[in-house]
Design a protein around this nucleic acid. Structure first.
Lengths: 120, 120
DNA sequence: AGTATATTCAACCATCCGGTTGACGATTGA
DNA sequence: TCAATCGTCAACCGGATGGTTGAATATACT
């Protein structure tokens, strides 16, 4: 019964999952490769991917023993239209978007780049 | 530490809260009036409003003993831009938005219209 | 003053969520 | 065949979430 908007927004509410989505913007990735930059167990990432898949934001195709993850941006369409209806924000400001991505990928606590590698 | 995107998306993930936001599109409302159509305790609605306020999606101003809730659509801007970056969805399709709103307000399980419909 | 209205607080409950570890099935390859 | 790799499953944990009820606070009305 949970609306599509429910699952999409809920999936996007987690910074790890948003980071994964932005990683997948560049290319399809195997689960292990998605997990590699994170300081989290593979099973944890696997769960996040399942949530993203459940929301339709990615699809996963198994070839051999490797499961490939592919971004499905169309799943955001409904949610995006819903939001735009409120603010009528300027359409598709790619500059702003890239700034966001950079900030998330670099500075975010879940970001894969230069986190304090504690307990490793 | 939780990102603004975290709180905004999390706030939007709940259908009751989305319905409240669309109600506030038409006008500012008192807490009691917001709660009236819902099959939920006033305290429950009050909590939802607090979450919306925490995400910046609404502001609440107390005049007398009435607390007025006002939509703050700008709080969606960052999240909206983030999403648009993925799909580059057609800009501001108001028709689609109104269809969404109608569907949510009428058919959704949390929709305020037909209060008797609960025990399915 | 006394009562009604508007809203929140506090405690409580069940469930979900994000994460872990360890075992497991499946596939690859030496 | 045996071992390594890929990924999920199951059980568990602590903390957040969504909801309730009942008391408390603040304002308004008569």
């Amino acid at each position: 019964m949970t609306d599509q908007l429910d699952t999409v927004f809920a999936a996007l509410a987690d910074p790890t999952r948003r980071t994964i989505l932005s990683m997948l913007l560049e290319d399809d990735m195997a689960v292990t490769d998605v997990a590699e930059p994170f300081e989290m167990s593979l099973a944890g990432i696997s769960k996040h991917l399942a949530i993203l898949a459940g929301a339709g934001l990615i699809t996963q195709e198994k070839r051999g023993r490797v499961k490939w993850c592919k971004l499905e941006p169309d799943a955001m369409r409904a949610a995006s239209i819903w939001m735009q209806g409120f603010g009528q924000f300027e359409p598709v400001n790619l500059d702003a978007f890239e700034r966001f991505l950079e900030a998330e990928l670099r500075g975010a606590p879940t970001a894969p780049s230069e986190t304090a590698r504690q307990g490793d």
